[in-house]
Design a binder for these strands. Structure first.
Lengths: 244, 244
DNA sequence: CGTCAAATTGACAAGGCTCAAGTGCCGTGG
DNA sequence: CCACGGCACTTGAGCCTTGTCAATTTGACG
């Protein structure tokens, strides 16, 4: 597992390094973190609300989301995650989970002991800053989602979600925003945007009819005019703080 | 202003101390922070999206909110704040604002230079941890709001917002949850819950009719059966991480 | 070729919005 | 002290976006 580990964590280092410039000593401590790697099926729950958590999760392959469930049974997806994302920085400082972590597709996850991560933070302010920043980007995205769900109509809402997905995907080096495969179902999109899957379906059709978006198969999206798409959705990448 | 400053910051110290136990040295560095105190009228914008920020704000008196504006002009309030709250921890690490900060009522705000706060964090891991935790609580509240706006119907949604307000108010030592004066207009409640003020008005009436809530004057709320109210709203205080 | 989940479509219901008018409260000025 | 003005709050009527229910089609995979 050791060779494995160094490979995996290299990506982690790059991510943190982008959030806050790290020294080679920082690099060493990060690569020195121990980890447990697990393969998970789609729709597995990694963490459930109320769980006592002692590890942070790093998503290595596949897609995941964070979600909460309302009293009436409604499921609300609160964020999507892609390879390279840290799934729950917050457990660095809170040991009880306040939401669920669920895989969307089959996935590979690295679990890093929180205590080790804390120690690294203590010895390296730069690493701490990087992780902190990551958490702040998270929060910024949540704010945008509140706006999205609260104040945009169904069609724009979905368009905005797609813009965010495409942008983060590109920024994670997973491909161009103009053409991509969605990992989530229309039900998932609905749960993320506060709509029903039926209405998501109709809204996607509307986006096609308006020429904003083309689909090749149900999950493959092509955006001919990416700037137009962003304008249509009222999407500005600022809140993602990509060039921190 | 110096005597003033120590007074004010005492509250700040208490808040951080609750989030992470601080030493007396930590206390000194916090009380040693310089600050600029300003009185603001209601509906003033403290920070606007896109602003370059070099100070963190601490709300000393009055109420404020954070909000974003959609392309179509819709205003979405993303969080409410009360005396003692730090309004933008995130500017500790991001210098461009991604949302607006607005007063709800007349308010008194302390501005603390970010550089000084950063220095304190560098020298005191405990202070850093406290501020970090505060930011994480923020994020947790945003997640709950996404759920609130996305998956609860109008009446429950408003009930939930009131529960949160009452709980945080109590926790901030501002009074019992069973009886309080709301600082915000019904328009504000609408902007926070993704509803129109008209529908907020009707929903409040519904809450009264169902016996969940009593009003004495438009803004004074009385909740006879507080546990029942929480059950009705599906409110559980866990996400507020009050007993960190 | 059968199976199952996801996607699609239609008909209808309903929750929430829009528009519009009216009321109540409070501070200001005469 | 009263009249006025403005803002927030109320209330009603009708519309429209989105939800519900249910049936059908599609597509991936064994």
């Amino acid at each position: 597992m050791n060779a494995d580990r160094i490979d995996r964590h290299a990506g982690f280092f790059e991510k943190l390094n982008r959030l806050s410039p790290l020294s080679s000593a920082d690099r060493e401590s990060i690569l020195g973190l121990s980890s447990r790697v697990a393969r998970l099926r789609s729709h597995s729950w990694i963490v459930s609300e109320g769980d006592l958590v002692s590890e942070c999760c790093l998503l290595l392959e596949g897609y995941a989301c964070r979600q909460k469930v309302a009293k009436n049974g409604g499921r609300q997806i609160v964020s999507f995650h892609m390879p390279g994302d840290i799934l729950d920085v917050q457990h660095l400082w809170f040991d009880v989970a306040d939401h669920n972590l669920e895989t969307i597709t089959n996935a590979v996850v690295a679990y890093i002991p929180i205590q080790e991560l804390r120690d690294v933070c203590l010895h390296s302010p730069a690493v701490a800053q990087a992780l902190w920043r990551d958490a702040l980007v998270d929060a910024s995205i949540f704010r945008e989602w509140v706006l999205n769900v609260g104040r945009r109509d169904a069609v724009t809402r979905i368009a905005h979600m797609l813009c965010e997905f495409a942008t983060r995907r590109e920024s994670a080096g997973l491909g161009p925003p103009e053409s991509f495969e969605l990992p989530m179902t229309q039900q998932d999109i609905g749960d993320a945007t506060g709509l029903t899957s039926v209405h998501v379906n109709r809204s996607l059709r509307t986006l096609e009819e308006r020429g904003i978006l083309r689909r090749e198969g149900a999950r493959h999206f092509r955006i001919a005019d990416w700037p137009r798409m962003q304008r249509y959705a009222g999407f500005t990448a600022g809140y993602l703080h990509l060039a921190a």
